[in-house]
Design a protein around this nucleic acid. Structure first.
Lengths: 370, 370
DNA sequence: GACAATAAACTCCTGTTCCGAGCAAAAGAA
DNA sequence: TTCTTTTGCTCGGAACAGGAGTTTATTGTC
């Protein structure tokens, strides 16, 4: 049941500071309804009105719609392979406070407990204004909020322990959430179907269709690194052969260069990609070609109109743009070659996952605020 | 703005003949609201009430909710490579009338005109009850309803000419619409993410996420046949190399058997697949392996919980189930192997596309009926 | 056959939301 | 100042949704 009030909150969340008159036009109500709506949402401590910069145009000046100073907040958390962090985020996406620390080798349950303690402290500071939480994790999350992060060696970690009685609780894969953020506050705003790919230790990603991220049946959508675009002779740690991920990540570079498997594949890969030596340049070119070819296949199959690259994808795009473009163009279906969907570096960088956690938590909360 | 009335209509459409009491429980209203809703929708000639079979349980008997005998209808049309057809479909999916004929080599505009004339005749017969149209086509449809069907040699055919001033007009690819139908009235009912694949002359398909078909940015989603799961040495008519479609359709069988490219690849392929000779059996096995491997890749990437096969996929599944299963299992990521998403033949068969056209047209119309 | 038990439909009333018409207010332009 | 333009405010009516209590139609039991 989408009510006008929810629509207005969504508009203000998408563009905080929007003028009241513009917002009314966007949701298609008259000035009478706008007065009633803004009044009601102000009473409910959800919206406030602020001054606008003089527009210079004729007519009665309008006000800017901003989050209420005592309005609801959400906690956005991110766990990476080396640290965790929690932000307190208001309507519109601004961060009011933050906390975090290094993982320091601790186990999953310990880290979730530490994160939960930080959320409790922030809730005390903000007087129960924090109404929900979104968590980004480097792994897959089942519908009952159990986390599996093979990269960290964590299995069956109960994320719900971070805030057991939260009114709104969402959690998701970091690549999935980065895609969400990129589609709402990054370069993919307005794309009909955005494909986001993130190369770190492995290749993950997500599809955002009409602003909605596809999470899949088990919350494990976007594992494009395990589509068989690669060499069928190479065995992937996942058990299958020919996975695309094995052709574009650090392990692929090491294999091409005859190096042993690197301890930290991400910084190893970044070093190789940015190296001017002929060996690394050739290996980087091979990886860029595999990346471009796979992107073309995904664009063909999913009909995306925009592709964003995160993580090492940004480095590859900077180091070998023509290799990626050539393989991408060659792999597209005929009718797409005239206007290939752009392949762009993600705008939000390392903040993508936590920003996406905030977006998804806000989206979930907004449907409940009436 | 989803109102209770629309929700109720959707419930009745999904399960015509549902009892009034059950429907009220499904949409979460009390008996008072149900009385008011059913009364209002009856007045508007959208719903009628019919008798129910005695349940044998205690209590006042309830009535069955059925489409109103003078209620709105939609026209569902399908154009295939050999014929066209129009059905008149009421709420709930029952077909009231039908018309159609062979293409007989006519061009796209002629066929659309003939189809439009049939729709006009049906509208006269049904006294303007027909409120919208859905059309399934063997090609891609742009947002402004221009059809491109390279298989038929049709380009820039204006589908809107079939009914220029239709209140509701939807059109889509046959594989996409078959997926929609399969997810609403076929084996994929209830699947969170259903992947539908249809092999005919080429391989197409669609993803249905939470009951919604992904149509893509240009209406060309689901061209999974052009993902590079195949042999990189084989050139696809689309211009790219290694397309999966070239590894699983009739042309693949012909190549494996050393035959010339067949005139009618669909019936050729069906003959080979069902042949008991050793050569065809081996070729079929190779194609089944390529199919299973690709399905696994798509399931990995999209996290589907159900896969349905249509067209020649049904024949392949019948002829070489163990080959498909073996390649499918081998290609899945470790954590999926314990409970692989089932791969099933589509239930609706050749009626899938037209049934999907009806579903999509009804979905579009229902949001307008209030 | 009378009566209890049960499930569902009906009536009536109230509160919320939404919208439009007309009016008032705050700015720039003449 | 006065006019024009844009926006906000007030008020009344309509549609919708929901709840409490009542009535109705059926099955089960004595």
């Amino acid at each position: 049941m989408t009510t006008r009030a929810t629509e207005l909150l969504r508009v203000v969340h998408a563009r905080p500071g929007v003028t009241r008159a513009d917002a009314a036009r966007m949701i298609g109500v008259g000035t009478g309804a706008a007065t009633e709506l803004v009044g009601r949402l102000g009473q409910a401590q959800l919206l406030a009105e602020g001054p606008t910069a003089p527009s210079g145009a004729r007519g009665r000046p309008t006000t800017a719609l901003i989050p209420h100073p005592r309005g609801p907040l959400i906690a956005a958390a991110s766990i990476t392979h080396e640290s965790w962090r929690v932000d307190v985020v208001e309507l519109g996406g601004s961060v009011l406070a933050t906390a975090g620390e290094e993982l320091a080798g601790r186990g999953g349950d310990e880290v979730v407990a530490a994160l939960g303690a930080a959320v409790q402290r922030l809730r005390l500071e903000h007087g129960d204004r924090i109404r929900g939480i979104g968590i980004s994790v480097p792994g897959t999350v089942s519908r009952d909020l159990m986390l599996d992060a093979s990269q960290l060696g964590w299995h069956e970690v109960d994320l719900a322990a971070a805030w057991p009685r939260a009114e709104t609780f969402v959690a998701g894969n970091d690549a999935t959430l980065a895609a969400s953020a990129e589609s709402r506050r990054g370069v993919a705003v307005g794309a009909a179907v955005a494909l986001h790919l993130r190369i770190e230790a492995g290749l993950g990603g997500a599809v955002v269709d009409g602003g909605k991220v596809l999470i899949g049946a088990l919350g494990a959508s976007g594992e494009f690194g395990h589509m068989p675009f690669g060499d069928p002779a190479v065995r992937c740690p996942c058990g299958a052969y020919g996975c695309w991920g094995t052709a574009v990540d650090g392990s692929a570079l090491a294999r091409l260069l005859g190096h042993a498997a690197p301890r930290d594949p991400v910084s190893y890969a970044r070093r190789i990609i940015n190296s001017p030596e002929p060996g690394p340049v050739a290996a980087t070119a091979a990886v860029a070609t595999a990346l471009g070819r796979g992107i073309a296949g995904l664009v063909n199959g999913l009909d995306a109109d925009l592709v964003t690259l995160g993580g090492l994808g940004v480095d590859l795009l900077a180091a070998a743009p023509e290799r990626i473009a050539a393989a991408y163009g060659a792999g597209l279906m005929d009718f797409r070659r005239a206007a290939p969907p752009p392949v762009l570096p993600a705008l939000l960088g390392d903040d993508g996952p936590i920003a996406g956690a905030a977006e998804e938590a806000w989206t979930a909360l907004l449907t409940r605020l009436v």
